[in-house]
Nucleic acid binder design. Structure first.
Lengths: 337, 337
DNA sequence: AGTCGCAGGTAAAGCGCTTAACTCCGAGGT
DNA sequence: ACCTCGGAGTTAAGCGCTTTACCTGCGACT
């Protein structure tokens, strides 16, 4: 392994000078800079991140903690992660994925090892024990999602209000008046506090009330089967429905196939609009789904950005709320007759 | 931060003793062990991984390198990764995901930093430049997949022969005689060397020839759209087909929906059998797919195991080939009449 | 009785880098 | 001519561990 000492010797300078050059922490004359750079090139020098981390007490590693047990690692999570990894790399950080439990125990375990400079927390709950752990240990962190009371916590999240408003407005303007929301299943104890479900359902109730429409909300967990069952309940109890909004992406696929099974034409008889989805999943349905695209890419990047600003001591990034944007597909049309 | 020195002082021993105890590298009397453990508990000591890594020249971090550009991070990849992460953690290693290019440039870049002890390589190609990079730099590594010539490389892979045999045998014994394989698209330059596609197609040609059946292979990339198009070509050019085997998981969804669009009953008129798939994707189709389950969990674990054995200097794990196993669903039945 | 081996412990030299604190020198101000 | 000050380097003290070499008893073997 070629070390800084080798480079310094070859360039005829002290190793401190090499370090200053590398980190750009002190000026260096063009002449010495050239000599050092040449030496590095000739020797094929690569700085050792571990030594650097020990000396500077910064590892330049960021962990993305996501609750493996409670949430499957699906396409949306993948999108968050890859966007975040990309941004991190651009800022010369590494991103590692940490599957942790929702209770914060594993998180505390991992933090103790001094391996990471900061944490991006995903799938945040309204009251999240993990936030407490991070606070206690003094770890810098940013949330993708929001707790209920966010005392100045760095966070980015979906703008649920704007998204739901856009969705309802879209359907309303097409002429739909009998809407149903297939929401998350808040009765499930693992999710009763899950931000996206709580917030989007609340937004829906508010918006639909403003439009003066009936409020019908049917719970469903995020699987095709659950979606099918929810759709069947809707057909049975609310046959007048002309448009269904669906919160969960995999449930949406079930909703569409249940409607087709029951002989309903989509979108001729019933329109289906998915509230938060990535294109890859939308393409899996036939016809391809009309949906509001989860801003996974943006949020992944912003989350990392918010964290890195703290780490680098820059101005904090103010909280960002990004709406999902409408992406046309083949499952929404005007109501029948 | 509480360091080993603090613990040693409190326990009245030297810091070397603490280290020996922690790493179990030298015997310690029960009495001192107790004193040290008490001190650690009282002080809430957690060993610093970075310092340890620097001193021991082992970071206990493993990277899983997967080609982000060429392969989307889908459900199968997620399964590999989570299984691997789980196993790694059990062995007190960390697993980080590295999206890298197929050419090996980024990989070399990252390896130089001395951040990882070893690499698990995913989506291996028959001739893979990344393998060269790993060899050159002397990094321990294991492959999930295989190169064409594997001179003693540690690897685990799907047993394509056994899987394809099982698939064809299953269909044959139900009475099917007119089969088609919708394979990967080897004409795509990014994939002409992609092991799973090459190997499964070769296996198919061999097996079907042994059964004395017609060999019909239709290429398709891995998307619902491509699958739909491939299925349409099959219906047009080979209307006598009674069963379709599909290589790619997302393409399978397209195949099923194209058949239904064309008024074919699945499995009444045509059976569809997916060759490599995870349950999550199979559930997205209606009816749920009959498929051979990709042994992602097993391979993820075995891949890590193979690597860690090298790192820990244990006996090498012999190459493992694991077949995909049949999982019944609603898309395979006897041929019509 | 002599000595060999080993269990149990210590001291100290790094691992490859960062970062004060310090030196040296020439330009500017007065 | 004197002092000051900032730019460009250097020296050296760590960062928190691992690990080698070394020391000391003590029981066992001859």
């Amino acid at each position: 392994m070629v070390t800084m000492r080798d480079v310094a010797e070859r360039a005829g300078v002290s190793i401190a000078t090499v370090s200053f050059l590398l980190n750009d922490t002190k000026p260096v004359t063009p002449a010495t800079r050239a000599r050092i750079e040449e030496a590095m090139l000739e020797l094929g020098y690569r700085r050792n991140m571990v030594a650097r981390a020990l000396a500077s007490r910064r590892t330049r590693i960021i962990a993305m903690a996501y609750p493996a047990l409670e949430h499957r690692f699906g396409m949306s999570t993948a999108e968050f992660f890859t966007a975040a990894a990309e941004r991190a790399r651009a800022k010369e950080y590494h991103l590692v994925l940490w599957p942790v439990g929702n209770d914060g125990v594993e998180l505390r375990e991992l933090l103790g090892q001094g391996l990471v400079d900061g944490v991006v927390l995903m799938e945040v709950q309204l009251a999240d024990p993990r936030v407490e752990v991070l606070r206690e240990t003094g770890t810098p962190f940013a949330l993708i999602g929001r707790t209920a009371e966010l005392g100045g916590l760095a966070h980015v999240d979906i703008d649920f209000d704007a998204t739901v408003e856009a969705a309802v407005e879209h359907l309303y303007s097409l002429g739909h008046r009998e809407l149903v929301l297939i929401s998350g299943d808040l009765a499930d104890p693992r999710f009763h506090d899950y931000g996206p479900w709580v917030r989007s359902e609340a937004a829906y109730r508010r918006v639909v009330a403003e439009y003066g429409l009936h409020i019908v909300v049917e719970p469903s967990s995020d699987s095709p089967r659950a979606g099918r069952e929810a759709a069947e309940r809707v057909l049975q109890h609310h046959p007048e429905t002309t448009a269904i909004l669906v919160m969960n992406e995999y449930a949406t696929l079930g909703v569409v196939s249940a409607l087709k099974r029951q002989g309903r034409d989509v979108p001729g008889d019933v329109s289906v609009l998915s509230l938060f989805m990535v294109p890859e999943v939308a393409a899996l349905s036939d016809p391809e789904l009309t949906y509001l695209r989860t801003p996974g890419h943006e949020l992944g990047q912003l989350g990392i950005e918010a964290l890195i600003r703290q780490l680098d001591g820059a101005d904090p990034l103010p909280p960002q709320l990004v709406p999902a944007t409408l992406s046309p597909g083949g499952t929404v049309g005007p109501p029948p007759r």
